[in-house]
Design a protein around this nucleic acid. Structure first.
Lengths: 133, 133
DNA sequence: ACAAGTACTTACCCTAAAGTATGTAGCTAT
DNA sequence: ATAGCTACATACTTTAGGGTAAGTACTTGT
């Protein structure tokens, strides 16, 4: 009769961690791979759906729209649809979303420092950091 | 005979996106849910394995060690093991890892602004932001 | 002899996220 | 009439990440 682990309180623990650690809070909103990348693209101003696809060619349509919906639900961006044909939809950051600029900016800074080999590309990218004139 | 989509170039695209977008570079290193949280805990100084577990109760041992290994492989932290019994292992940030401090800090700032309800808890947490005296 | 402590490891399962492929609406231009 | 444009939706499959549970090594303390 081996002792049974009493570690079934993970849900509770997750909640308290969420309340104690600010980074956990952030991760709940923009955690994962794609969200910060999408937000980064919108820093330079509102973009059409098709523009986002071009800007992030590695993402699939399904995943892109999926995250756009979630980010909208989380109040980080807003969707504006013009009732025309063909459809014209633009996405732009909310105040909350825009407030993430320092976070994304520091990420870009770090990327430049951290990578030796691709440093040149990144540095160029940093120069025209969206909305940082 | 419907036209077949020629979208099998995702790997190439991913590579070019990686070279163009600094945030993508960052996501490859600290993307996902847990890594930023772990790094955040280490900002206040090196910690033992068991300390990390206590600090992040919601994470399971398997996932924790899994990420520690990866972060070590990515040169964000180092592992130091003392050859004693019971084992004594400490993890601490490398220069690269420490350089993430501004990123994590801005995240914490954002978390405070973004949340109304939990603002108090977060603000208290911000006051003693690790290594920011 | 055996329980306890620490830092793991391994095996198995399950779910959520992501990828693939195709379809659709509704008007426009040819 | 049909192809083309945009912004999706939907079904189906695959993969990666995470969760659960249990085991291991090696010595000290009782």
């Amino acid at each position: 009769m081996t002792k049974v682990k009493e570690s079934s309180t993970i849900q509770e623990n997750k909640k308290s961690a969420f309340e104690e650690c600010p980074v956990t809070y952030v991760m709940e909103k923009i955690g994962g791979y794609w969200k910060p990348i999408i937000l980064f693209q919108l820093l330079s101003g509102s973009k059409r759906y098709s523009d986002l696809r071009k800007a992030i060619p590695a993402i699939t349509e399904k995943v892109l729209i999926q995250h756009l919906k979630q980010l909208e639900a989380d109040q980080l961006l807003t969707r504006k649809a013009m009732p025309v044909v063909p459809p014209h939809v633009t996405y732009s950051l909310t105040k909350s979303g825009l407030a993430l600029k320092p976070v994304l900016y520091e990420m870009a800074v770090w990327a430049v420092q951290d990578s030796k080999e691709n440093a040149k590309t990144f540095r160029r990218n940093l120069k025209n950091f969206p909305g940082m004139n």
